[in-house]
Amino acid sequence: MLTFLNHFINGISLGSIYAIIALGYTMVYGIAKMLNFAHGDVIMVGAYVCFFAVSAFNLPPVLGLLAAIVLCTLLGIIIERLAYKPLRQATSLAVLITAIGVSYFLQNAAQLLWTSNPKIFPDFFGGIAIKMFDGQLIITLGTLVTIAACIIIMIALTVFTGQTKMGKAMRACSEDKGAAQLMGINVNATISTTFAIGSALAAVAGVLLCSAYPSLVPTTGSMPGIKAFTAAVFGGIGSIPGALLGGILLGVIEIFAGAYISTQLSNAIVFLVLIIVLLVKPTGLLGKQIREKV
């Protein structure tokens, strides 16, 4: 029972990281209607920035995280401006292929800059953990921080899109860019802001991910990126609570599958669940399907 609980907590922790990445995917998809496959690699860049800030410049972890957020935000805005904005009128396939290109570009640039030798990410949480039942149930500080970060981000985004003028403008753009422009909303600036927010979230996710799984290589962001994309689709792409739910479920399923069925097959099982969910409910768990009167 305690082992089960341990796995469950680990699953939620991993799921929280997926959820933070998935929120970035889902926001960009919601507004720009594109799948930013380079999102996972922004995570990797964020982790490297934090790694060097802490290990080479001896900054405290919080400043390392801040540096990662600032640089990833800039990176997100630059990627959007250079790679995606010129394709605003192009077919979605062209944009998708460009995103894959950006993804490989980032991975290879990272390999060139930082080599493919794994960097061992420092443990920011100093191994602090709550131990219960004679050490059979362990909740690390890292786990608690990860879950708390996910909840705070989720609440902040919900308030932002629901209550603020900029957030509402984002929702307006996500529905109808032409009509949004007629309202005086600067659509390009709104898309840029969305990329900035998504990339800042990617930086947070990168630092949390490498704190839990400390081996950092240029492809570190790739698999979590794909899984978070899966989580976003699983929960209903475009939906903020959907990204949270999808991410957490995916993390829990992955950990349980690895613990009770097979470690090798855990990824296969994760994607199998996705396929089943999409067969039954094509819009994802919380996907929007609004009935419109004409």
């Binding site: 003028k165 509402k168 403008a169 929702r171 307006a172 529905e175 109808d176 009509a179 949004a180 309202m183 909303i185 929007k288 609004i290 419109e292």
Partner: peptide
């Protein structure tokens, strides 16, 4: 904006 409320539409 079909997924926004009447009042939010006016705010936009």
């Amino acid at each position: 904006f079909l997924q926004m409320t009447v009042e939010e539409n006016l705010e936009m």
